[in-house]
Design a protein around this nucleic acid. Sequence first.
DNA 1: CGTAGATCCTGTTAGC
DNA 2: TGCTAACAGGATCTAC
Length: 288
Amino acid sequence: MPELPEVEVVRRGLQAHVVGRRIDSAIITGPRAARRHLAGAADLADRLAGKDVTAARRRGKYLWLALADREGRAQALVLHLGMSGQLLVSDAGTTTPRHCHAVLRFGDDGPDLRFVDPRTFGGLALAEVDAQGIPAPVAQIAADPFDPAFDQESVVRRLKARQTAIKRALLDQRLVSGIGNIYADEALWRAALHGERRASALTRPVLRRVLDHASDVMGEALEQGGTSFDAMYVNVNGASGYFDRSLNAYGQQGRPCARCRTPIRREEFMNRSSHYCPRCQPRPRATR
DNA sequence: CGTAGATCCTGTTAGC
DNA sequence: TGCTAACAGGATCTAC
């Protein structure tokens, strides 16, 4: 599932293959893909035509293409991959894949950009940007750990005020962005913390540690994902090698914990799976 | 406002 | 072999 490292791999692909080109036309076929663009799919396609792509940026799991019109006015095409979104750079003649909901065509002879998303949790929207170039829908998203503006002490302060489970807080994109279920479980395993521990009850050093682990695990995934990135195929699965080799908790139920050999457990939490070592990460007492 | 749970969706896989 | 049910989870909406 695309979390920060996978989305960053896609951003780099957009940087390499889309930035500096002028959009000639757009075709938006999936109504759900444009649901965040309130004026509708046809309006979105109209407004994209003729725009220059000036940058490919990211905050957490949100991607956007910075756009400039003929007068140089800035806007942004915000892209979210959801659960299953992919951005493919492919020649216009090639077969359109199943679940392709949007195509950008460019004024040059280069390849198209296609948005493919079977589960349709992702989407595109045109947005206004602020003075820093941040699109309106991204404004309430917190900095991710790789953002120069990331302020760990501020996140720790806010975590100390949260009465909710630490895992839920880590997944709240308004607190710290980029972390999804996989990396939350991995960070909690590394920090030897059960995800249902109350955030406010953890000490500041422990909170710093879990944030550091989240940053580390995503950085390591990015290193591996970045190397297997195919030049012409911008694929959210670029980091899949990481999933095969380096996970200690996520999807490891029944396998021995790498620290203590106790079998990893899987439980339902927040309508999704949580994976943890029952010995290294003991469940909190029934205080919550 | 903070918190918690339900919901959207379809390809893949496990199990009978 | 073929079918069904469970499973995957990011973001948003609603209710309390």
